[in-house]
Amino acid sequence: MARPHRWAIYCRKAGNPASPLEENCRGGKPAAAVDSALPTGYAGPMLKRLARQFAAFAGVGAVATAAHYAVLALLVEAASLRASLAALIGFTVGGVVSYVLNRRFTFDSARSHAAAVPRFAVVAGVAFVLTGLLMEVLTTRAGLHWLVAQVITTGIVLVWTFLGNRFWTFRDAA
């Protein structure tokens, strides 16, 4: 069975009869015009949805980051653990929070956990390695305080994880 065009999937999810694409999505088959080009007025709703998702992602990220930073601070300050190792432990705690909240609130994905968890793990694995490398370089080589290094690292990793999760992990299977 052929996979539906991605714009048809967007339209079906929108469920808005006033949508300029609604008539093109009947039966799950987009009109030829939808396959070849976006109809006039389509970019606005798509960008609004993307902006809303990014805002939700950032909100969930704030909660996950709070968990991450709390573990990081506790391990560095109370347990005298090396900042790069403590950051990775905190990252793992934040990752669990992130998966649960993003799946439900940000992307409202219908992809099964069996399909989404391995993809999330790959995106998180890349982010995990980036976190460790950036924290090590920024604290030991650049001489930054661990908290400043973590803020910089968080900003870089945020972009990677949003794009990876938005366009791969939680994209609904067709």
Rank of each mutant, 00 (worst) to 15 (best):
A8Y: 09
I9E: 09
Y10V: 15
Y10W: 15
C11H: 11
C11W: 10
K13Q: 12
A14L: 12
P17L: 09
P17F: 07
A18W: 08
S19F: 15
S19V: 09
L21T: 03
E22A: 13
E22N: 07
R26T: 05
K29L: 14
A31P: 10
A32S: 11
A32I: 09
A32V: 13
V34N: 00
D35P: 00
S36T: 14
S36D: 13
S36K: 15
S36F: 14
A37N: 14
L38Q: 11
P39V: 07
P39S: 05
T40K: 09
G41Q: 09
Y42K: 11
A43R: 07
L47P: 02
K48R: 15
R49M: 08
R49N: 12
L50Y: 14
L50V: 11
L50D: 01
A51I: 06
R52P: 00
R52I: 05
A58T: 14
A58V: 11
G61M: 02
A62H: 02
A62K: 01
V63N: 00
V63H: 02
V63E: 00
T65G: 08
A66W: 01
A66N: 06
H68F: 05
H68W: 08
H68D: 14
Y69F: 09
Y69H: 01
Y69C: 01
A70V: 02
V71C: 08
L72G: 00
L72Y: 08
A73C: 05
A73F: 08
L74S: 01
L74W: 04
A78S: 06
L81Q: 09
R82H: 07
R82W: 11
S84D: 06
S84Y: 00
L85D: 07
L85Y: 09
A86Q: 04
A87T: 03
L88K: 06
L88P: 03
G90T: 01
G90A: 08
G90S: 05
V93W: 04
V93S: 00
G95D: 03
G95C: 05
S98D: 04
Y99I: 10
V100S: 10
L101G: 10
N102G: 15
N102V: 15
R104T: 11
F107M: 11
F107P: 03
A110S: 14
S112D: 14
H113S: 08
H113K: 07
H113A: 05
H113R: 03
A115R: 09
A115W: 06
A116P: 00
V117A: 12
V117I: 13
P118C: 15
R119M: 07
F120K: 08
F120Q: 12
F120V: 13
A121L: 15
V122H: 04
V122Y: 03
A124Q: 10
A124P: 07
A124G: 15
G125R: 13
G125K: 13
V126P: 00
A127Y: 04
A127N: 04
F128S: 02
F128H: 01
L130D: 01
L130H: 04
T131A: 12
T131W: 09
G132K: 10
G132C: 13
L134V: 06
L134K: 04
E136S: 13
E136Q: 12
E136L: 12
V137E: 05
